[in-house]
Amino acid sequence: MNIIGLYNYWIVVVLMMIGFYVVIAHENLIKKLVGLSIFQTSVFFFYISTGKISGATAPILDPEYHLYSNPLPHVLILTAIVVGIATTALGLALVVRIQESYGSIEEHEIQSQDTQDQMESQLEAYGFRKKHILSIQNLDE
């Protein structure tokens, strides 16, 4: 098996794992999106690698050349790049709105605010009025 010759696929796998790890492990919402972008980009590399034939040229008909690379994966990946940009843009827009309404883009801070909201609504559901509720901050103190 030709390990060094397949170096582009190794890069794909390494990038893919880095991206995937960042998405899972990071708490910061923007860092997560960065990870997601790396993850997607590795797939772009993968598609482009599959279209490459060594010694071949671009598929322009010319009597001089007989070996052509496959252009289809490149075209497919142009579509995927557009989708990736749309996803990143939408994700960033959401992060902006999250920052505006939570005042934070760290996952655990957002979660603790959400749990507090939920506790309040639960207590309210069981008949407590809002002002009597112990907030998480009070409990901590």
């Binding site: 995937f20 997601l36 993850f39 797939v43 709105r97 999250i98 959400d114 909201d117």
Partner: peptide
């Protein structure tokens, strides 16, 4: 509700991972 934003963000992350898995498979 502001939790709609985090719900949407979470769905975006999971959904994009799902979709990327699908193109890896197709590729």
């Amino acid at each position: 509700d502001r939790r709609a934003l985090t719900a949407s963000y979470q769905y975006l992350i999971m959904g994009t991972i799902g979709a990327t898995f699908i193109i890896i498979g197709v590729g």
